[in-house]
Simulated assay, not measured.
Amino acid sequence: MNYKYLLGVCIALSLLLTSYQAADSIQWTSFDKAMEQAQAEDKIVFVDVYTDWCYWCKVMDKNTFTDTEVIEYMNKYCVSVKLNAEAEETLNFRGEEYSNRAFVRSIGVRGYPSLLIISPDGKQLEVKAGAHSAEELLSLLQKYNKKYH
């Protein structure tokens, strides 16, 4: 058997599986990259503000963020970020550097999970506390996408 042919088939299958897996989940990115990408692609930024100990955050991970309609919509129309409110990381927002803790306090997060929507030009549009169903999340995202597109 021709090894070059076999290698080509393996690479093609690998690429096919990789693209299939990407459509199988939300494409999460870092906060700083998301802000750059949102401006370049004219998309809203969706931020899931969570903590490791939060029960309802895990419920959203299991139910809402695995919904096929949510995955498809968010990957197409949003730049998505998972932001651990208690992680020892820093981010930049509107020219200021924040720790994750300081950032979530500055935007008005009072509980977890909280959903943050930011416009393509970096304006905070909404912070919505609590767990949300797939239908509720889609409705919220569609509301803000209509404003900008």
Rank of each mutant, 00 (worst) to 15 (best):
A12P: 04
A131I: 05
T90I: 14
V45Q: 09
I107L: 06
Q142Y: 01
P120F: 06
D24R: 15
C78A: 13
K76V: 02
Q27D: 12
K33W: 01
I107G: 02
M60T: 08
P120I: 05
N75H: 00
I11N: 06
V9K: 01
E136V: 04
D32E: 06
L115E: 11
L137A: 03
S80T: 03
E97I: 01
A129R: 02
K143I: 05
L116E: 15
S106E: 15
L13K: 00
C10T: 13
C57S: 12
Y55M: 13
E69I: 01
D52A: 09
F93N: 07
L125C: 10
C10V: 13
Y3M: 13
R110D: 12
D67T: 07
C57F: 06
L91N: 07
V45H: 07
F103Q: 00
Q124Y: 05
S119V: 02
V81S: 09
C78K: 04
R94E: 13
Q142N: 08
D121Y: 00
P120M: 05
Y148A: 12
H132K: 04
D24V: 09
T64G: 04
I44L: 11
C10A: 15
D42N: 06
A134Y: 02
S133Q: 02
Y3L: 14
V47A: 11
A34N: 13
A40V: 15
E97S: 07
M74Y: 04
K43T: 01
V45D: 10
L116T: 11
W53K: 09
L137E: 05
V127S: 10
Y20W: 15
L115K: 08
S19A: 14
E69Y: 02
W56I: 13
D32F: 04
S106T: 09
F103H: 00
E86F: 03
K143T: 10
L137Q: 01
M74P: 10
D32P: 03
L6C: 11
M35V: 07
R105F: 03
V104S: 08
V70T: 06
M1A: 12
A38P: 06
M1Y: 04
Y50F: 15
Y148C: 08
V79Y: 03
E41C: 00
E41S: 15
E135W: 00
H132R: 08
I11S: 03
G8C: 08
K146T: 14
L16R: 09
M60N: 09
S25N: 13
L83Q: 01
Y98R: 05
L115M: 13
D42S: 01
M60V: 10
L115Q: 12
R101I: 00
Q21L: 15
V70H: 00
C78Y: 14
